[in-house]
């Protein structure tokens, strides 16, 4: 078993555990861990896991999903187990099934135009950008819309990194170009 699949299976185990306990915070932690691994390894299954765990954490914490039937979570848990048991392609397929379930649920019960998975993509892309990956890289890895990511990161202070300021030089160059 490759190191990557072992890591994914451990993360899926944590996801199942968090889901059974209906622990939204734990799911967000697993999502963050999956993204952290994805930043290094770049595997699609890690990104998918980060997205679905984040979206599931939101479902658990939002009041308008509070009367959701147990079947939803039972089916999600089964997909997690199947994802864990399979090889790479099966893992991706089952995580994508969870993704589809979330999108369908959000279409029926969600309050916003952007569904939970789209919001998860923006959030995770923003995190990757914060970590130092380019906007394009972050958006492509997660499938997020770069316009949405830019809008999101613009409102956050955590992306600010002044480094060695060159503002005066930049302004001088701009003046020179447009004189």
């Amino acid at each position: 078993m490759g190191v990557e699949m072992k890591t994914i299976r451990i993360l899926i185990d944590h996801s199942i555990d968090a889901l059974k306990r209906k622990d939204a915070l734990a799911l967000r932690r697993v999502s963050a861990d999956a993204l952290s691994e994805a930043a290094i390894e770049g595997h699609r299954e890690l990104i998918l896991l980060a997205l679905v765990d984040y979206a599931l954490s939101k479902i658990l914490s939002k009041t308008h999903y509070s009367n959701l039937s147990g079947d939803f979570f039972t089916t999600v848990e089964q997909h997690f187990r199947d994802a864990r048991a399979g090889e790479k392609d099966d893992t991706i397929m089952h995580l994508e099934q969870i993704e589809d379930m979330v999108i369908k649920l959000d279409k029926e019960k969600g309050n916003y135009e952007a569904n939970l998975i789209e919001k998860a993509k923006i959030k995770k892309a923003s995190k990757l950008y914060e970590q130092g990956f380019s906007l394009r890289r972050a958006s492509e890895m997660t499938g997020a819309d770069p316009v949405e990511v830019l809008s999101y990161i613009g409102t956050s202070k955590i992306h600010e990194f002044r480094g060695h300021g060159k503002n005066a030089e930049r302004l001088r160059i701009a003046r020179e170009v447009f004189k």
Partner: peptide, 17 residues
């Protein structure tokens, strides 16, 4: 606010420059 990598300190610096 729309994603230009400016800090609030950068903005104040520009206002001076």
């Amino acid at each position: 606010l729309r994603g230009c990598s400016l800090s609030s300190e950068d903005i104040e610096e520009y206002m001076q420059m």
